[in-house]
Design a protein around this nucleic acid. Structure first.
Lengths: 134, 134
DNA sequence: CTGACTGCAAACGTTTTGCACGGTA
DNA sequence: TACCGTGCAAAACGTTTGCAGTCAG
């Protein structure tokens, strides 16, 4: 796995617990603290919540992970990738990534705000196809 | 003030403390819990944080207020108004409203996600003109 | 072998709750 | 007058910290 080198370059050791967090996020895309904790408990019955928090924070610090703040829901974490937006299902809580063309939007925002814009956080709220069919 | 009727219609009494919260938000636009607490302490030296929380939650419940979750900052609250987006200054923490044309963006999001979209939360991050000049 | 990581327990900051009193309608 | 709201104190909750033992490099 390439991730190991990336971690080591940032003085983070590739412990089984840490790698499992990365793996879970790789498999599930977005997870909150509790979901991560419960998943890791299966492999590591004596893992502590503190370990989860320390690892998340360490990997946030080196921008290996990113936090996604959601309306009416706990923050979820994801592996850092190219810039993208999120869509949250307000029924089942599922979160997906979408890539949007933001050029026009940023232009508008720059004009109307007079701020020097760095980045944006965009979350859409709705109902996913699964929930809509049941 | 028109707000009083709006509150009463939702079985919320127009107490001085509650009205002060509304007034502060009206004047300042966006405030977090601590800022509200410190502001109200001037008028009500014995006000409790619990009162602030209870009032915010009561007014959130009736959608009289809205919460804005910000990256790397505490949530702020605002009086509910037409849909709009936010721009946060990562230096001074100031938050402003901007109205954007989201039609194109929503179309894209609908296509790419297959979700039934309800609304969106958009926060830009940058440096405000004031901070940029100093 | 050394420094970083884990897991536990305690500490911490934030938010919520229960209750008696006071104020709005 | 009836009920909602306030303020206080305590409780609950999520997150962080300190420490001793353990493990990765």
């Amino acid at each position: 796995m390439n991730y190991i080198t990336l971690l080591k370059d940032n003085n983070l050791k590739a412990t089984p617990q840490r790698l499992s967090i990365v793996e879970e996020l790789y498999l599930h895309g977005h997870m909150n603290v509790d979901q991560l904790y419960k998943s890791l408990l299966i492999k590591f019955p004596s893992i502590s919540l503190a370990t989860i928090y320390k690892n998340i924070n360490a990997m946030l610090d080196i921008c290996f992970l990113a936090e996604v703040k959601l309306p009416n829901a706990k923050s979820v974490y994801e592996l850092t990738k190219e810039e993208h937006s999120h869509v949250l299902c307000s029924k089942c809580g599922d979160v997906i990534d979408i890539t949007l063309d933001l050029s026009k939007l940023c232009e508008q925002a720059k004009e109307k705000s007079n701020y020097i814009l760095k980045d944006s956080a965009i979350v859409f709220n709705g109902i996913c196809p699964k929930c809509n069919n049941s």
